[in-house]
Design a protein around this nucleic acid. Structure first.
Length: 472
DNA sequence: CTGGGGAAGGGGCCC
DNA sequence: AGGGCCCCTTCCCCA
């Protein structure tokens, strides 16, 4: 029986020339051979790279030249798969690639990983490495970076487990086989890989950033966005994976939960969950601190994107580590990052809904809880402060004209809380966070003067300190 | 099924 | 740098 060593499986094989009838049999474990062989092969390739032997690919990163083997790059990176498969079929020709969206130091980390399986991550480079990996479409590296960040943000680990936790201040090294990709990606081949855009454009950003944070609806998305290997899709998944869906602070936006998802959050079950609430608050606080820690690394993810003004001076832009979006100002990037981190620092005192921006909270509050719109909800006619009666439905307030009020009839509007027209919406909220649309609604019709009187004082701006918003 | 409207989310940019 | 405004897009609900 001829012997064929299956290096891809972990099985026992007979030595060549031995049949099952021959005794004694000598068995050896091919897994050991596989590991040894891969390790030796990788070492050889790495040695060749360092000696620039048989290197047929030149990569220029911000002026610094890297030499590598095209087949190694091809096997390790979706970007290089695309790049190398698009070029002329002449295998003898040298291939050049130029990058200016990440630093040579970052590419060194990437290249070292490709050739050694060792990924040297630290709090100082994880964002940029992840960004570069996303650009180069290296899912395994992204996953390691994701795990690194996730470990750093993991607040569920109790104190006794702290020793096992990765800290942002630590430097760690992830090990994996170089060129490790999912079998799915391998099967899809280079033709299915979309290269990242060389330069960011407004339209491109619009579409991609618009996609991120929304449901990745394959029907509605453009073809490039439906590509599971496209940077936007990949990073969208990665960014969402970073979030703990059970974390109240990191609650995904409603629309990210899918079309079939309910829009209203289930109210807290009972007050017996008080301890859980406290734990959640503590977790939220810690996570917010970690997010701040992550934000502190922002200066390191600044990149000069390939834009130049009319004076040929480079325009500095801030690149999002989770997607291809770039912004002019760091503050805008910080604001943008909230759509990836899920951070919602502005809770509504009336309905506990949380917002990423103060202006969104204010708009929500004025629209939903203060009936600022001078439009009759029923007939859509314009009303004034005088003619528009304010109807309270739970924590929701809206205006109706006199005619519609009479048409509906006050008898049809439960008015069981008329003794408190000046109550702030926040005070109308049950202790368990009664939401709009609750079956036990509180309806009120108030004079507009009452609203005008208390309007402006209802909204209590509270940036998240997570101290008491869940307890109200 | 479709279109309109409301609400929310996000980007650009001015102050 | 933060706040705020404007605008656009997306999603959901409803007729």
């Amino acid at each position: 029986m001829d012997m064929v060593a299956d290096l891809g499986s972990n099985r026992l094989y007979r030595a060549p020339g031995e049949s099952s009838h021959q005794q004694p049999q000598r068995w050896f474990n091919t897994a050991d051979i596989t590991v040894s062989h891969q390790s030796n092969l990788l070492k050889q390739l790495n040695q060749q790279r360092r000696q620039e032997l048989f290197c047929d690919c030149s990569v220029l990163v911000e002026g610094q030249l890297f030499r590598a083997h095209r087949n190694v790059l091809f096997a390790s990176s979706g970007y290089f798969r695309m790049l190398l498969s698009q070029g002329p079929d002449g295998l003898s020709e040298s291939v050049n690639a130029t990058f200016d969206v990440f630093s040579p130091e970052t590419f060194t980390v990437i290249l070292d990983f490709i050739y050694s399986g060792q990924l040297d991550l630290s709090s100082h480079n994880v964002i940029e490495v992840m960004s570069a990996a996303s650009y180069l479409q290296m899912n395994n590296v992204i996953n390691y970076c994701k795990n690194f960040i996730k470990s750093s943000l993991d607040i569920s680990v109790k104190d006794e487990d702290n020793d096992r936790c990765l800290s942002l201040s630590e430097t760690c090294s992830f090990t994996s086989g170089a060129g490790e990709e999912t079998s799915e990606q391998q099967q899809q081949g280079p033709s299915s890989v979309s290269p990242p855009p060389a330069l960011w454009t407004r339209d491109n950003s619009r579409s991609q950033s618009g996609f991120i944070g929304k449901d990745p609806d394959p029907e509605a998305s453009a073809s490039a966005l439906t590509n599971p290997n496209s940077p936007a899709n990949e990073l969208n998944t990665e960014a969402e994976d970073l979030q703990d869906p059970h974390d109240p602070l990191y609650t995904l936006p409603e629309r990210r939960r899918g079309k079939g998802g309910t829009k209203r959050r289930a109210p807290n079950s009972t007050r017996s969950n008080h301890h859980e609430d406290l734990d959640m608050q503590e977790a939220r606080t810690q996570k917010a601190e970690k997010a701040e820690e992550l934000y502190a690394t922002l200066p390191q993810i600044v990149g000069v994107i390939g834009h130049f003004n009319k004076d040929s001076n480079p325009i500095m832009r801030f690149k999002c580590p989770f997607c291809t979006h770039t912004v002019k100002r760091k503050a805008d990037l910080k604001r943008h990052l909230r759509c990836h981190t899920g951070e919602r620092p502005y809770p509504c005192q009336a309905c506990n809904k949380r917002f990423t921006r103060l202006e969104h909270l204010r708009s929500h509050f004025e629209t939903i809880h203060q009936a600022r719109k001078l439009v009759c909800r029923k007939c859509k006619c314009q009303v004034t402060e005088e003619t528009g009666h304010v109807v309270c439905e739970g924590t929701r307030r809206y205006r109706m004209c006199t005619a519609c009020i009479q048409e509906v009839g006050c008898d049809n509007i439960p008015m069981d809380s008329l003794d408190g027209p000046n109550e702030e919406p926040a005070l109308l909220l049950g202790v368990d966070g009664e939401e709009e649309g609750d079956t036990k609604r509180t309806w009120m019709v108030t004079d507009d003067d009452d609203l005008a009187e208390d309007s402006g004082a209802d909204l209590i701006i509270q940036q998240v300190d997570d101290s008491d918003d869940d307890l109200q």
